[in-house]
Structure formats: C-alpha cells, structure tokens
C-alpha cells in the first residue's frame, strides 16, 4: 500500500483569544510577555488531518516544520506527543520582522531542504495575524497547487486527493493532483490528545540550543537516541538569500499601531421595570425608530 510524506507547518502564537486588560500596554501595544504561547489552533486541526492519513496509510511520515524563536521547539514536542514522526525548528535572528512574504520564502527554502513531499498541511490562519497568507504563498513558491479552507481530506486516489472545503456560504469538494498544499479550518475535527507513551518517548527531545541547559548526565542520551535530537536550522542551513528575509524581505511595513478606542456615549440607564420599558417602547414608536 502507498505511503505518503507529509509536512505540517505549525506556528507558536500568543493566545490572543483571551487578551485581558493587563495584556495591553499604555501606548496601545500588546504586551506579548503576559500571554501564554500556544500551538496555533488551526495548525492542530491540520496536524490531525495529517495523522489521519498516517492512520490510514501506515508507513506515512508526518514532519513538523516551525519557524520562530528558540522556545518554539515546544510545539514540535507537542506535535511529537500527538503522533508526528519528527520536526524541524527554523530559528535565526535574521527572520525577525518577517511579514508573510518573507516568512513563506523561508519556509519554502526549509521545505526544499527537507526534500520530497506529497502533502503540506497547515492551519488556514494563525490567531496572532489572522492573515491566511503564508499557506498560499508557500504553495506558490514551491510551484504546487493549493486547497485552502479544507475541512476534510476525504479520499486519496492513485494520484489525486479529494478535499472538502468549508466556504462562507456552503461546501465545495475539489479534486487535485499532489504534491499539494492544503490549509485546514477550525471546523475540521479537533486534534487527538497527547499520547502517554509518546510523552515518555519524547519529553527529553530538544534542540541543540535547549541542550545547553541539560545536565551532563543526560547528554549521552542524544547519541543513543537520535530521535531526541530536534534539528534546528538557521539561514545558512536553508541556503536562503538574506535580503529576502526579515524586514528587508518584507514589502509590508507597519506604519502605526493604535489601541482600539470607541466614541463613548453617556447611556441613559433604565431599570428593567414595567414603567421604564413601556416608556422606552413608546419613545421608539413615537420617533419612528420602530413601526
């Protein structure tokens, strides 16, 4: 039976869904330090789709690829705990300030270095930027077709994949040749939980930077168990052109960032008694707001 090589693009993001007051600084910028860093939710949906292919076609491999600061290795471990086979961390100061175009260039270089693939899966968008651009831009740079807003990989035939997409006003099923890049929406099935055995297996998996802090006693493990070594790549490793990365490789610039301020009004406060509500309804009817 056929097996497939799958790459999952994942991002570690600040949890913007629950931004409390302390997360906003006086100047209207976000204090990222107080927000927990999480596995981007839709990337987990993408990982689940990848793992389902692996369930169905044993021998398939799921490789995670993430770009970010050294601590982003955390989400590679998260992926390994759920059933991914290996993962790469792309980290370099030269990536800082990259917009979606520069990010997609770096990721596409890393994918070329990883080698052959049948599918690249990614979340539709990340909750810190909500742009949904990196997936399609990676696909363009690799010259492969894309299917965005995917909810399920329905079937894989000899040389074609059938994918159901969830659009604003309905569903669409498409058939595409592969290699193919697919972005997955949050309406797709949630990712399976961590597996206890895999946690035991991978909890000491680290990148070389993280290993600076590991005690001497454990270092021997990384020779015996190569799967505990999470590869970490920099600009030189992926043979990227430095001017296409970071700020210089980013056509979009942030001109200004503002806190969201609304025009405050002085609300007339009414109690919920019969009299007040009758008065209000009469008022709305007489000034033709209603009826």
């Amino acid at each position: 039976m056929k097996n497939f090589k799958i790459i999952v693009l994942a991002k570690q993001v600040p949890d913007t869904r629950n931004v409390g007051k302390d997360a906003m600084k006086e100047d209207g910028t976000v204090n990222r330090a107080v927000l927990p860093a999480i596995f981007n939710p839709e990337d987990l949906n993408a990982l689940e789709q990848a793992l389902r292919i692996k369930d169905k076609y044993p021998g398939s491999t799921v490789t995670l690829l993430t770009m970010g600061p050294p601590r982003a290795a955390e989400i590679i471990r998260e992926g390994l705990y759920r059933g991914a086979d290996n993962g790469y961390l792309l980290t370099d100061r030269a990536f800082a300030g990259s917009d979606t175009l520069a990010t997609s260039y770096a990721l596409s270089r890393a994918i070329m270095k990883i080698g052959d693939f049948d599918f690249i899966l990614a979340g539709r968008q990340a909750i810190d930027g909500d742009t949904a651009q990196v997936g399609p831009q990676v696909a363009e740079k690799l010259g492969v077709p894309q299917v965005t807003y995917a909810e399920e990989i329905v079937d894989i035939k000899k040389n074609k994949a059938v994918v159901r997409r969830r659009l604003e006003k309905g569903v669409e099923t498409v058939e595409s040749v592969f290699p193919l890049l697919i972005t997955v929406t949050g309406t797709a099935p949630a990712c399976r939980p961590r597996n206890a055995k895999l946690i035991m297996k991978y909890k000491r998996a680290t990148t070389i930077s993280e290993r600076q802090n590991v005690s001497e006693d454990y270092i021997f493990m990384y020779d015996d168990r190569p799967f505990l070594n999470l590869p970490e790549w920099n600009v030189g490793d992926i043979e990227a052109e430095p001017e296409r990365l970071g700020l210089s490789g980013s056509p979009t610039k942030v001109k200004k960032v503002e806190n969201v301020v609304f025009q405050a009004k002085e609300a007339k406060v009414l109690e919920a008694d019969n009299q007040s509500i009758e008065w209000l309804m009469k008022e709305l009817i007489s000034n033709h707001t209603l009826g």
Partner: peptide
Amino acid sequence: PAFGGNIIATIINPEH
C-alpha cells in the same frame, strides 16, 4: 485590526 482585534494597525507597502 490585528492581534485578535485588540489593536488597529496601519500597514503600507512603500517600495512594491
């Protein structure tokens, strides 16, 4: 809007 809608950003593409 950016960052889950908590800030508003103005973006430009000066050179492209």
